[in-house]
């Protein structure tokens, strides 16, 4: 998780916040406040992100300009829908705390919970 991984996430934060395609120099500037990576490091990581499909780029003048291929919300939505989906595949990959229940049953059990609460002193 350290090193490149962290920098990748930080760069994606910059890309998602950006209003237009950015050159590496500008990405570096926007990273500056909290970290001081070398220009070449950022360039390398941007290249990795490009090859992984997180960002796209076009040649402009003497360097590339980069932009995020999809918004952060799109990725989150994809993640959450795969986590929320009740399929055997998902169940094997990640363990969800609780499946969704139908509202009527939740109501009924809430009432039962309240009854149990009044029945015994609070811990």
């Amino acid at each position: 998780m350290r090193g490149f991984g962290e920098l990748e996430a930080a760069i994606m934060d910059v890309m998602w916040a950006a209003e237009a395609a950015l050159p590496v120099r500008e990405v570096l500037n926007r990273l500056r406040p909290d970290r001081e990576p070398a220009f070449t490091t950022v360039q390398t990581v941007m290249d990795i992100l490009y090859r992984k499909g997180w960002v796209d780029r076009r040649l402009e003048g003497r360097g590339y300009r980069y932009w995020a291929t999809a918004g952060r919300d799109d990725y989150v939505a994809g993640l959450m829908s795969s986590a929320l989906k009740s399929s055997p595949d998902r169940a094997a990959a990640l363990a969800r705390f609780v499946e969704r229940m139908n509202p009527a049953e939740v109501e009924e059990l809430r009432a039962a919970l309240e009854a149990a609460r009044t029945g015994e002193p609070p811990p």
């Binding site: 929320l84 009740s86 399929s87 055997p88 169940a91 705390f97 609780v98 499946e99 969704r100 229940m101 139908n102 509202p103 049953e105 939740v106 059990l109 809430r110 039962a112 919970l113 149990a116």
Partner: peptide, 30 residues
């Protein structure tokens, strides 16, 4: 039990609230 009900009662998302084994959660709470 309260925590289970809090997260099971998710009315934000549309669609049927049916898991693969819908009764299991109720049984866990009971």
């Amino acid at each position: 039990a309260d925590a289970l009900l809090t997260l099971a009662d998710d009315h934000v998302l549309p669609g049927p609230a049916l898991g693969t084994t819908p009764h299991d959660t109720g049984q866990r709470v009971r």
